[in-house]
Structure formats: C-alpha cells, structure tokens
Design a protein around this nucleic acid. Structure first.
Lengths: 203, 203, 203, 203
DNA sequence: CATGAATGAGCGTTCATTCAT
DNA sequence: TATGAATGAACGCTCATTCAT
C-alpha cells in the first residue's frame, strides 16, 4: 500500500516537474537565463510562483535540470546508436544523425545547450555536473575513432583533437539548422557532413 | 591650436574608453553580461560609477563596444592575411592561424565572442550590428573556397556548408585552447586543424 | 463561494491601496511629487518598498491615483448638491460649500490638487485624464449660470469667463483656509464668498 | 579707477546673471523645478555647467532668483500704477491691468509664479523670502479697498477676504490667458473682470 | 574667471525567494 | 500540497555639486 501511494505520488511529482521544465525550457531558449523570470515560468505552467519552489530549489536549479534531461538522453542515445552501427563510417553517421535529429526535435533544449556549451561564459558555469560535459561527449567520439584505428579502418591521428573538432562540426550543422540558415532535408545535411568528416579523418 | 586642444581631449577620451572597455571585457568574460555590474566595472577601472556614463550611454553600450572593436579587428586581420597568402592551402592556414592567434592574444574578448556567437540566445541578440556577423565571417571562408574551386585546386563542394563547418572547426580549436584543454603549441594545433580541413575539402 | 473568496481578496486589495494612497497623499502634500520617495511612502505605510509595486505600477501611478479618487468624488459631490439646490443663489452656495467643506476635510488631497491645478507646470501634466479637469469643473459652474440666465434670475454675462472666475474665487478661499490664513468658521467664509459672487453676477 | 573697474565687472556680472536667469526661467516654466537640470540651463545659456555655480550657489538659488526679480518688479509696478490712478474703480482697473499685462509679457516667469503660489506644495516652500509674498500682494489690494471705504466709495466689507478673492480673480484671468483658454484682447478680458469685481465689492 | 571631467549619493524599479494560510 | 502576498537586496542610471586645470 505504501508502495502504491508512493508511486502515485511520484507520478504526479514527475508530471509536475516535466510541466515546469517544458515551460522553462521554452522560456530559457527564448530569453536566456537572466531574462526569464520565475513569474513567467509559473504563468506558463499554470502554477503559482511559490509552487515552483516545491519542485526546484532555485531558479538555477530549474535551469540546470532543464539541461540535465536532454544531455543525458542525448548522450545515451548517441552511445547506443553508435554501438549498434558497424564500421567506422556507419558509426560516424549514427553519431551525426542522432545528434542532428535530436536537435531538430528538441529545439528549445538545444538553444539552451548551445548557449551553455558555446565556449563562453555561462550561467551553469561552476556547476560540477556540467563542467565536463563536452569532454564526456568528445570521449564518445574519441573512442569511436580509436576503435576505427584499432580495426585498421583509420590511420594514425590525434584522436582527442579530432574528436573535439568533429563534435564542433556537428554543432556547426545543428546551429545552422536551428537558426534557419539551412533549408535542406536533414538527410542531405547529414550526408554532407559525414562526407566532410570522412574526408578529414580519412575513412 | 584648435587641433591641439581637440587632440588632447580626444586622447584622454580614448584612453578612458579603453580603460573602461578593458576592465569591462575582463568582467564580462568572467561573469557574463547579466552578472557583471556597472559598479564592478567602475571599481575595476578605478573610476566612479557615474563616470562610466560619460563615456558609454548604458551597460549594454559598454558590452556592445566591447565586442565591436575585437570583431572588426579580427575580420580585417583575417581578410588581409588570407589575401596575402597564395594558394588555397596557404589561405586556409592564414585564416586559421590568424583567428587562433588573435584568440590566444585576446582571451577576454574571445570568451565574450563565444558567448555571443555560440548559437544560443545572447544578450546582444537584436542588435542589428551583430546579428549577421557569423554570416559575414563565413562569407570570407566561402569566397576563399570558391576561389580554390575556380583555380582548380578544389573539387565541387557545397561551399556555404563547408564554410560554416570550417568556421566552427576553428572555433572548436579556439575553445579548447581557451579552456585549457589543449596544451600544445599554437603551431601544432594549427597544423593539425589545417590538415584536418584539407582532408575534408580535398586540398 | 467564489464570490466570498473574490470579495475577501478584493477587500484586502482595496484596503492596501487605501493604506498606500493615504500615506502617499500625506507625503505628496508635504513634499511634492519629486521630493517624496517610494521608500518614504513604503515606510509610512509599514510596507516594504517592493510591495508598493504590487498595487501600483509606478510612482507616477500612485500620484495619479492619489488625485483620481478625490477629483472624481468632489466633482460628483458638487454636481449632486448643486442639482438638489433650488434657485441660483442656493445653487451657488451649494457649490461653494461643497468644495470648501471637501477641502477642509481632505487637506492632503487638496494640497496636491492645488499644486496640480494652480496653472503652472505640474507633474501630472501630460496625463490625458487630468489635463482638462479644470475645464470640466468650470463647466459645472457655467451650466449653473446658464440655467440662472434662462430662468431670468441672471442678466446677460460672459458665462465662461464668469465660471472660471468663480471657480478661482472658491479656490482662493480654500487656499486661505488651507494655509491657515483664515481663522473663521466655514459658514462665515462661505457666506462671505457667496455674497461676493452674487454681487459680481448680480443675483 | 577702482570704481570704473568695479562697475565694468559688475555690468558683466549682472549680464551673466540675467543670461542665466532668462534661460532658467524658460526651462523652469516648461519643465518645472525638478525636471529641469543644471546641464540644460548651462547649455541654453551657452556656458559651462560649473560656471553657473560662480553666479548662483545652487539650483535652488537659481530658481529663487528666477522668481525674485519678477515678483519685485510686479509688486512695484502694481503699487505705482495703483497710486497714480484716481478713484477706486480706476485703481482696481490699474491693478488688474498691470498684472495681466505683466503676465502677458512675462509668460515664463508667470508659469513659475503660478506653480509656486498656486496654494499647493512648491520647491520654494520654506524660503522665508517667498512664504509671505501672496500676503504682501493681497495687502496692496486691501489698502486699496480700505482707501475706497474711507472715501465713502465702498461700503463695509471684509477687506482682507475681499483682497484675497480679488487677487485670485485676477489670477484666474491670467491663468486662462496663459493656457490659451481665452482668445480675447487683453482689454476685453480686463474690462470683464473689472466689471465683475466692481459688482462684487459694490463700486 | 571659466571649464567640464569626475564624483557618489540617491532613486525608481525588479525579482528570486520565503512563509503564513 | 499549493498559493501568492510580501519582502528587501541589488542594480542601472541621473544629476547637483566640486575642483584641478
């Protein structure tokens, strides 16, 4: 019985959190961290301002959680798809496609993501959790490349540098699509980028 | 005589502006636009808060001017160096090196620059002057590539997409260096990236 | 039930507004618009500065609302009393007495009122709502006089000019009383002025 | 020689003061005391901000002096013209005409004057010099009336109250003219008012 | 005398956060 | 649990006044 109650409670809790995070995501994407107010988030959620503090301990917390879900999901998704793909080319494609697709489908999240991890100063700076996120993501790519080298598909390479560079090539594409600078079908853009990358790393 | 007086005044004026901008740059780089206060900028400059408003009409104005000088200089520098270089390889290298060197030497400026042009929401958003800056910079690269194609050094290519991608590959390198993720000599990093790029575009 | 809840909220809201307006009125009367600060108003109300902005959207708004209630009430009061009185003499007396009594009983309001409508520059200048108030009030008098003329109680007259003049005669009396220059009973002063006016317009 | 130098100096000094006061008058009339800035006054005068403080010890001082000249001149003018006129009617007319004419010719001054002496709160409040000005002016009228009573031209009357009232009747006319509510020739308006006053006091 | 750069106290306003209900 | 009124610290900006030149 306790379990049932707990569960019901949890479901509601999670539902509320998601409501808030979705509204927050939209706002943070549109106005940035500093310009978005708790008032607005509350209004967008249909909740009272005070209620937000039952689910999140501060504005910053909302912001961080706003990033958290997406980053985790994206990381996991990419890792999974890469693993399933066979051969370095396919793996690269899986990675690129996963990220671009995710960005297409989660535009609000990605705008925040880009603000955060553009290389400049950011509100989440100092949050242990996020400081090393780009490193983690690059590591996925780096491993992929090392695997290719071991299997002889790739020649010698500065894997770390290459990984970062590829990561930002993907970011470049996503940005262009997000800002509406690219009007192509996703597949077309992904194909182009994969060709570009394969040229660079020689696969 | 009028000239002398005018000049003296102008020299002081420019000196003050630079004092303020340098302090502001440091602060904006460290804390971002929203978190940096005029009070702090004033304190860092050794001036009183009100004095800032003799030279800049608002906090936003300080911020924008903080970007302005660097972006103009960088654009000009890159264009010049690229033009002087002969052959597509040399031109690419000139571009990459110019930007990386400038970033190394103007770290504060570049942190702000990356915050602004990371693809997400940004404080200067809406400032007509800066909205299209990335486009302008990509155009420099695009022209470079088209030139290479005309001279037969490069094969067929989506020049626009390639330009954006290269731009972000450079950005990738700069970010890594700025955040201390790369401990290499500048030349080494530049060499790597140029090789990478040339692999990608086939030169 | 909804009604009850709504009412409770409204009662508190109105109570707060009145608290604030009363304190503000006292301060504006004493120091004028420019010299009175929101801090002081808050302190006088026993509220925090920020709280004022829950009920009024700006200092100017407080000031305008400070005028609003009194002006509306006075206009209405005067119109009512004038209408009830029969004969031009009685009507004039009703008008004079109503205004003088109101001023006696709302000294703070009237000091602000006089500041606003003294003929010089004023803080509310530009507020559409108040620009023509003196005109409206004079119109009440003008109608009264025209009525008197139609009924044959009054001879020919420049009604508009007379209305304005009478209005300022009343103002004159009110000012003297407000500043303590007249120590007479209200009735005595009112009698005097009515005699004076009747002499002037010949009734 | 000392005298000559002194005099020359004084002439310049007075000239500067007048320049400043004229500009200030215009500004105070237009924007009121609080909204007008020393910067603007300086700009309007063609002098530097600091220079104003050589001639006036504070903004308030400028404001007070701005009132001073006009009030003194007006008082003197009115007293002179009244004295020259013979008979109560003529004296009243002299008074009314003098004031209305002065207002027509010194609109800026009079807007400030009305702001100050409208009965409400004002910036000059607390300045010993001006507190009793309306009293002094009313005294001129009161004496005029007493003279009329002594000579048998006027019946018994509350001279003080009548004086104040007449003063504000004149003010009423001036205000209407200043605000453009009256389009009549000055003489016409003056005639009307004199008739009105004479009706009231019975002359 | 004249200047105008510099000052810094002070104000209106905002908004994340708290807490009594 | 949910509310939303209340808070008050903090910030951007203004402007009367001073003073070194």
């Amino acid at each position: 019985m306790t379990v049932t109650k707990r569960t019901k409670h949890d479901v509601v809790w999670e539902f509320r959190c998601n409501e808030i995070l979705t509204a927050a995501r939209k706002l943070f994407a549109k106005k940035g961290f500093a310009e978005a107010t708790m008032e607005e988030i509350a209004a967008a959620t249909g909740l009272a301002k005070g209620t937000l503090y039952l689910y999140f301990k501060s504005k910053r917390d909302v912001y961080l959680k706003t990033l958290q879900h997406g980053t985790a999901e994206l990381l996991e998704l990419a890792a999974g798809n890469v693993q399933q793909a066979i051969g370095i080319r396919a793996k690269v494609r899986a990675l690129v496609e996963t990220r671009v697709k995710y960005a297409d489908e989660n535009r609000d999240f990605f705008k925040i993501y880009l603000t955060e991890f553009g290389g400049g100063t950011h509100p989440a700076a100092g949050s242990k959790e996020f400081r090393d996120l780009p490193l983690k993501q690059a590591a996925v790519i780096e491993n992929l490349l090392r695997g290719g080298a071991e299997s002889g598909e790739l020649g010698p390479l500065d894997f770390e540098a290459a990984a970062f560079t590829i990561q930002d090539m993907v970011r470049s594409l996503i940005t262009r699509r997000l800002l509406g600078w690219s009007k192509n079908e996703r597949n077309h853009d992904v194909d182009f980028l994969c060709g570009f990358i394969c040229g660079a790393i020689g696969c």
